[in-house]
Design a protein around this nucleic acid. Structure first.
Lengths: 339, 339
DNA sequence: AGAAGTTATGCAACCGTTTGCATAATTATT
DNA sequence: AATAATTATGCAAACGGTTGCATAACTTCT
């Protein structure tokens, strides 16, 4: 068996409490005793049993991160993994470990609740999709702090969340396109049920206004999964005499298909048409030409969320913190009209 | 405070031990008592404190999965995340939770050892890069079972590992190309320091022999990160009168650049030249034309590894299990020479 | 009805740490 | 040198379960 705190105590001729205090840096212990105890720990190859510590302290020493399997396992996961990595780094610095669980059953967060009830986590990182009244209620009762990774719907109950500033991203995108000399900017908007897509569109509108550009209603394009139909739509739009000369696309896949459609119609990118995408997965870098992208700093996002959570755990509670992180533009060939 | 096992015992008029036995399905308990106890648990909203359980049983109830940050955070991570998801599913079924830690410091696995020593995990899932003599030694002493995700070097100490059968993948690839009418098959081999790359090359050779095709030494191409140099090399190769008519590429990035190089040289894909890649990240699907790919069933891999580990944990020890999982071919446009 | 066998429950020690309170040891004060 | 103030340590009871062993409560059998 491995040695316990009592073994160390006996070996160094002190009481277990003293050893405990040394381990936890609590109270005042004389230099001599400390010395003795450290030596004993060395000799006996002692390592605190973290399970026992957690149990005694009533703190799990762990944070649960929930992954929304249906969403996260899509190709979009570069995002999740980097965020996770960033969070793990922060947690580790604070002595917490990171537990992963995936929410499978739609709406029913039984797995999460199980962990909350059984006190296996001191805090939670949640994807927006898992948040519902029942869960919020349980968390409230159990006094478990949590941070949501992604901007929630308007009018949600108050809680902490972190997201990138999608509106700012779109705004930056428009600025850049205009600076490059594009002036008839269209937006492939994606599913407007998702908050982040709404924000992207809103940022686009805001920027147009700021630049005093007219808003053509047919410049906001609804993406369709039916590739052929979508290509036809773009072709039709481009045939128009007042066609757009740039597209901001809501995500990489849309951008890819838009790119194909534009090329198919015979226009050159970036000379005739500029294309710019949100999200910066490898896909964006490897198209022809490579796509300019509104970049999401997933590392920063994870770090931020983790820090907020650590804060709430240590201060046990505290108010709701909301963070919109800045985006940046990764400029590539697809929008370089002028040098 | 939440209720404890003693509260439930008092409420239902039995002893804590009986309640415990009901919770754990241990021993024989009369229908009546069971009934009473279940009701009491309901009424008191009792949930076992999993920390206390773990502590009392001396079992963490958790598995640690280590992510090799330097490697995993590359674009290659679709792999990691799906594997992780698959494993989490298995662990959850067995009542274990999944803890993630990333190995940062090269060679020094202090984080892992910390968790092992402090008894926070009953088993480990490790990337090959973290495995070294010191770690093996510690795990041996602590009697912690582990499974390595990826084939180790030849002559490694015996332990359990899981990987896909990379040689088989290459073999399938050659078969497919030949079936499609390609006959001068080249291989872009990638860094031969990695075992999986060695295997891919070995499978290629094996298949050539099986088909009694000649092995041209200049058909095995060393990939270079210098894009321009690489394109020139491919162009030069293709200019040769005895040029290859198909390329099997060791990974998606190599495949992408090979594709570009071939196109730049004026050859049509798949009519003139076939291109096939290992690994099936989104990148492979979105090239022009889409790439045929040797697919890695990451879900199966995770599931498999997790099951092996669960097995070793429950049987506490057992021998080394080695698994080579079958690959499959995802046929796309880039190799469809005949209908 | 009493013995023997079976089934169901309780007792109490234990898992390894932490921590409030009491007290011993040391140092400062006069 | 005695007393007060301060600093360093020990005691013992938690924390919430689990489990080997003993025993009580039923059944079954003769």
């Amino acid at each position: 068996m491995s040695s316990t705190i009592r073994d160390v105590a006996a070996f160094s001729g002190v009481s277990p409490s003293t050893v405990s205090r040394v381990i936890n840096n609590k109270g005042v212990i004389s230099q001599k005793t400390q010395q003795k105890i450290y030596e004993a720990m060395q000799k006996l190859d002692y390592h605190p049993n973290s399970l026992a510590q957690s149990f005694a302290k009533g703190k799990a020493g762990a944070v649960l991160m929930v992954m929304d399997a249906s969403y996260t396992l899509e190709y979009a996961n570069t995002y999740f993994l980097q965020t996770m990595f960033a969070m793990e780094t922060v947690f580790q610095e604070h002595g917490y470990s990171l537990v992963i669980s995936s929410s499978r059953e739609e709406g029913e967060n039984s797995g999460i609740l199980q962990i909350v009830y059984s006190k296996r986590a001191d805090g939670l990182i949640l994807p927006p999709a898992t948040v519902n009244a029942k869960l919020l209620d349980s968390l409230e009762k159990a006094k478990i702090p949590f941070v949501v990774l992604g901007q929630p719907e308007l009018g949600h109950q108050p809680y902490s969340w972190v997201d990138i500033d999608n509106a700012m991203g779109a705004s930056q995108a428009v600025d850049h396109l205009i600076e490059q000399g594009y002036s008839r900017i269209a937006m492939v908007a994606g599913d407007q049920k998702a908050v982040f897509m709404q924000k992207r569109l809103a940022g686009y509108y805001e920027a147009l206004e700021r630049h005093e550009l007219e808003q053509h209603k047919n410049f906001v394009i609804e993406y369709s999964d039916d590739t052929d139909a979508y290509r036809a739509e773009i072709a039709h739009l481009l045939a128009n005499k007042r066609a757009p000369d740039a597209f901001i696309c809501g995500d990489n896949v849309m951008a890819f298909h838009t790119l194909q459609a534009v090329k198919a119609s015979g226009r050159r990118i970036p000379q005739d048409i500029g294309i710019l995408t949100f999200d910066n997965y490898p896909l964006a870098e490897y198209t022809e030409p490579p796509l300019t992208a509104v970049e999401v700093d997933t590392f920063l996002m994870g770090q931020h969320a983790a820090r907020i959570l650590m804060d709430q755990i240590s201060k046990s509670g505290s108010g709701e913190v909301v963070s919109l992180l800045p985006t940046s533009l990764n400029v590539r060939e697809s929008t370089i009209k002028r040098g």
